[in-house]
Design a protein around this nucleic acid. Structure first.
Lengths: 103, 103
DNA sequence: TTAATATGCAACCATTTGGTTGCATGTCAA
DNA sequence: TTGACATGCAACCAAATGGTTGCATATTAA
């Protein structure tokens, strides 16, 4: 669990998760294309995400595919938000989004 | 949003949130009593939690009460977990907990 | 087989982070 | 008013972090 928070602490790693959320199964080079840093730096970030079990990889020949795993993120919410409180927050968030859309 | 992840990255700050989750509205000194570091260090951590809007404070005379705000944590889950997927994950998590309890 | 492509590993460096100590300020109670 | 208590602010320091460059390995395609 500790590793999950450490992994989410960095904006680059959150962007990687965003990229995978948008298109799952991307290869290292594909992910690098959207990042403004060296491939080696991205590799390090992905290693940290893997260690936190937020990303799972699958080797295909010389390529490596990366997949987002949402389970640990769900566990974060469960740590500090009671079940009923969570439903209330979701409802509030929904309302807020709907109101914003009306502008 | 950036500040939230930074705030959650540190184990001491997560413990502070746990303490507040257990008993809300605690004063600085009360929180310090459970931590193994100087008051000044705890103050810094609380400032970071406040900046992230994870903790709200209320001055009462010479004391300062601290309250947990769960809203930003809920927003984390909403970022990478689709609404339906989340219900599925909650159900899975419930099942797991129930099975663990049977041992 | 050989050249190009995809990824892996390690040493190095600037900056950030989390802790300390020391002193200042503000509020309550005698 | 004065002493005790609760908190605030700043300088300083060791360790962790995020990036780089350079080189190694493994797979595909010509």
């Amino acid at each position: 669990m500790d590793a999950v928070f450490r992994a989410l602490a960095d904006p680059t790693r959150r962007q990687l998760l965003d990229n995978l959320h948008a298109r799952n199964g991307q290869t290292l080079n594909a992910l690098c294309a959207e990042m403004d840093m060296t491939r080696q730096a991205v590799t390090k970030h992905l290693a940290i995400l893997e260690e936190a079990n937020l990303v799972t990889t699958l080797r295909k020949g010389r390529e490596k595919q990366h997949y987002l795993n949402p389970v640990p993120i769900n566990e974060i919410a469960e740590r500090w938000i009671g079940k009923f409180e969570r439903h209330r927050l979701d409802a509030l968030s929904d309302l807020k989004k709907r109101l914003e859309r009306e502008d």
